[in-house]
C-alpha cells in the first residue's frame, strides 16, 4: 500500500524533527518537511498530500494564510490540516479553525496525541 504523504511546515528545525518523529510513529506515512510557508507553497503542487501540519508564526506567510490558501484551492481543499503552535491566543485559534483547520494543537503537548490524531485522520 502506498504510504500517506504528510507535509510538516515549521521553521524551527528541532521542532520540525520532533514533529516528524511523532508523525512517523503513526506508521504507513512518508514525511515531507518545509521550513517556511513559501516552501510549502512550492511543494504542495508536486505531491498528493494526505495531511498537512503547519505552524502559525512563520517568517514569510503566517499559518492562517497557508490554511486559507489550501482551503480555497480546489486541488487541496480536501486535505485535512492541523495547526501545531505555541500560540494559545484565542483569536488566532478560532480563526485557524474557522478557516478550515481540522485540529489546533497548542504546544507543549504529548507526542502520543499527535501520533494518535495522525492515525485517526489517516484511518489507520
Amino acid at each position: 500500500m502506498e504510504p500517506f504523504k504528510v507535509l510538516i511546515v515549521e521553521d524551527s528545525r528541532a521542532t520540525r524533527e520532533m514533529l516528524a518523529a511523532a508523525v512517523d510513529l503513526a506508521g504507513g506515512v512518508e514525511v515531507y518537511t518545509a521550513v517556511s510557508g513559501f516552501e510549502a507553497l512550492k511543494v504542495l503542487p508536486r505531491h498528493r498530500f494526505a495531511l498537512i501540519i503547519t505552524d502559525i508564526n512563520m517568517p514569510d506567510i503566517n499559518g492562517l494564510e497557508l490554511i486559507n490558501f489550501v482551503k480555497k484551492n480546489p486541488n487541496y481543499r480536501h486535505v485535512p490540516l492541523f495547526v501545531v503552535t505555541t500560540e494559545g491566543r484565542s483569536q488566532d485559534r478560532e480563526r485557524g479553525l474557522q478557516l478550515g483547520a481540522s485540529e489546533y494543537l497548542v504546544k507543549p503537548f504529548e507526542s502520543e496525541t499527535l501520533t494518535a490524531l495522525v492515525q485517526r485522520y489517516l484511518k489507520r
Partner: peptide
C-alpha cells in the same frame, strides 16, 4: 464561534466552504 468537530477522515468534502468544487474535477491524481 464554536470550533467545528473533527471529521475524520476529510478526503471527500470540505464543509467549511460553500463554493465547493466537486472532488472529481480537482482530483490531483
Amino acid at each position: 464561534r464554536t470550533r467545528p468537530a473533527p471529521r475524520p477522515p476529510v478526503f471527500a468534502s470540505d464543509v467549511s466552504s460553500p463554493e465547493l468544487t466537486p472532488l472529481s474535477s480537482s482530483s490531483p491524481s
